[in-house]
């Protein structure tokens, strides 16, 4: 089985590629909710690169500000746009603040793919990405975490 190479100018990646890629049992990303999906995909399958078809082949270019724990919410009053199924699914999760890692886990999207798509949705004005002003946590915040942890039993 051959797939069109997204980098090949003769065969530009088209959205129509996606339904085909996601129809198989080992389809990229794997959104199947069934619990038997818990087992990891068979390692001999060369499916490892396929998730990046969703990002049109981009593996780099994720915003370094978007970390695994970065909180994401839908942009209030964002205009309607046509989104891919993966992007729609991401937006659907973000009505409550949610972290990039949780999006990745719940949609079974690879982390790198999730970061790129979240960045795209932010650029499209669909999502607010709450990047922290100060990268290193201040003592007050750490004290709050300590108090919070001490309180649990």
């Amino acid at each position: 089985m051959t797939y069109p190479d997204p980098d090949d100018p003769a065969h530009p990646a088209r959205p129509s590629v996606r339904p085909f890629l996601q129809s198989g049992p080992l389809a990229a990303g794997g959104y199947r909710p069934a619990p038997q999906d818990e087992q990891p995909p068979a390692p001999e399958q060369s499916a490892a690169l396929r998730p990046f078809v969703i990002t049109s082949g981009r593996t780099n270019g994720a915003d370094p500000d978007i970390g695994m724990e970065t909180q994401v919410t839908v942009t209030p009053g964002a205009g309607p746009v046509r989104l891919s199924p993966e992007m729609r699914a991401i937006v659907g999760l973000c009505f409550e603040p949610v972290s990039v890692a949780e999006i990745s886990a719940r949609l079974r999207l690879h982390l790198g793919v999730t970061r790129i798509l979240v960045g795209d949705l932010r650029a499209a004005g669909q999502l607010d990405v709450h990047v922290l002003d100060n990268e290193t946590p201040d003592p007050e915040t750490i004290m709050r975490v300590i108090r919070g942890l001490r309180a649990i039993t």
Partner: peptide, 8 residues
């Protein structure tokens, strides 16, 4: 949407 919490 609810105000996003600060993640640590």
């Amino acid at each position: 949407p609810k105000k996003a919490p600060v993640p640590v």
